[in-house]
Simulated assay, not measured.
Amino acid sequence: MNEQLAQNPGLRIGTAPDSWGVWFPNDPNQVPWERFLDEVVASGYEWIELGPYGYLPTEPHQLEDELGKRGLKLSAGTVFTGFHKGEDEWKRAWDQALNVAGLASKLGAEHLVVIPDLWRSDATSEVLEARTLDDAQWKKLGAGHDRLGKALLEEFGMKQQFHSHADSHIGTTREVVRFLDETDERYTNLCLDTGHFAYYGGDNVKLIEERPERIGYLHLKQVDPTLLFDVLKNDTPFADAVTQGIMIEPPQGIPDLAPVIEAVANIDSEIFAIVEQDMYGCGVDTPFPIAKRTREHIFGCTHLARIS
């Protein structure tokens, strides 16, 4: 066992503001950012994501001080894109990148998690566009992400990690695989979100085994398999599904996290695995005990997990 650990120390396990119910930069019902940081430490984590830009301080020295005095480090930031809509989307994406990657890279983060626009609004549940893309839109999507990934590498030394998502155009296994086929692994790889991939029936371990070269980052979460069938049958908007508890505390849901962590650790032990349980709308006292129990579960179910 000691020799195995020396060869493969396992993945760095962190957490994110999403696990504290944070979806927006400013929402009076969300956990204040200082409390979030303090509870991350009390939960036993060292790595965090930036969350929505503007939730944590955006002045680099202030953020560095706040993280530093708590012994925390930053793994990634997040932006939102809609490249399938055409060339006009480039400015929107790059403006976000200048802010988010500009800040995160100053604090040592090497990854930018990129989430596609949803076809159904997560704020109002309004249907905004068709649920599927045509061939021309797929081409625009792939080209836009490769352009963004190349620019991020050249400008900030950061890697783009694409995040498939419920209520988006890239959610099912076939859609995720087509996205990989439409993009260049030099510039675009996956933030494999275990819960969102399972939301549409995806087999996380199978994808990892079949496309190991495209796994660059992990979001760890579980979906409630009993509630999921009701959500899909009733065409429940994702935001409503979240408030109903579709993303559930491990180990009560799927997929089993240990095989996912172990499969990715065998690809590259430098890949981050960030716990990101969608909990928007929860009470401010709810996240902390869940975060602590989740960390304890992960470290109890596999030896291929580490804090730093």
Rank of each mutant, 00 (worst) to 15 (best):
A109W: 02
A16Y: 14
K159W: 01
D134Y: 03
L50Q: 14
C191V: 07
V176Y: 05
V100T: 14
R174P: 00
L218C: 11
M279C: 06
M247A: 12
K69H: 04
N26T: 15
E3P: 04
E126D: 13
L11T: 07
W90G: 00
E249S: 07
Q7E: 11
Q277S: 02
I271S: 05
D278P: 05
G157N: 07
Y280K: 13
H163G: 09
V242M: 13
Y217N: 09
P9R: 14
R12Q: 06
R70F: 15
E110H: 02
D184Y: 01
K73M: 11
Q30M: 09
N29Q: 14
L218D: 11
G281T: 10
G86A: 02
M1E: 15
Q96P: 06
K221I: 00
A123R: 12
L11D: 14
G201M: 11
F179P: 01
N204S: 14
L228V: 02
P32F: 01
E64S: 13
D18Y: 14
V22N: 08
V22I: 11
A76R: 00
P250C: 06
G283D: 13
Y199F: 15
A241C: 13
R295M: 06
W94A: 01
P287V: 00
S168F: 03
D268K: 03
P287L: 04
P25A: 06
Q222D: 03
C282R: 06
R92T: 14
V113P: 09
E276G: 04
E39Y: 04
D193H: 11
S19L: 00
Y55H: 10
L98M: 06
T172A: 12
N26M: 05
I290M: 14
H297T: 08
L257V: 11
I208W: 01
E175R: 03
F238H: 14
P289S: 09
A239H: 13
P225G: 07
A16F: 13
E213A: 09
I208L: 07
P237F: 05
V22S: 09
L112W: 09
G10E: 11
D256V: 01
L220V: 11
C191E: 15
V22H: 10
F162N: 10
G195L: 08
G300P: 13
D134V: 01
D88S: 12
T132F: 12
W94K: 07
R70C: 05
P25Q: 00
N2P: 02
T58L: 08
A6Q: 15
L192M: 12
G86T: 02
F36I: 00
V100P: 11
S269M: 06
E3W: 14
P57Y: 02
R12A: 10
D193P: 06
L190V: 08
E129Q: 10
T172H: 05
E46W: 04
F162I: 05
P60T: 05
E262P: 04
I246F: 09
P52F: 08
P212H: 08
K233I: 00
S43F: 05
Q30K: 04
L98C: 12
V113I: 15
Y55A: 03
F229N: 10
P57E: 09
I115R: 00
R35P: 03
V223T: 12
Q160L: 14
E155W: 00
H84T: 03
A123N: 05
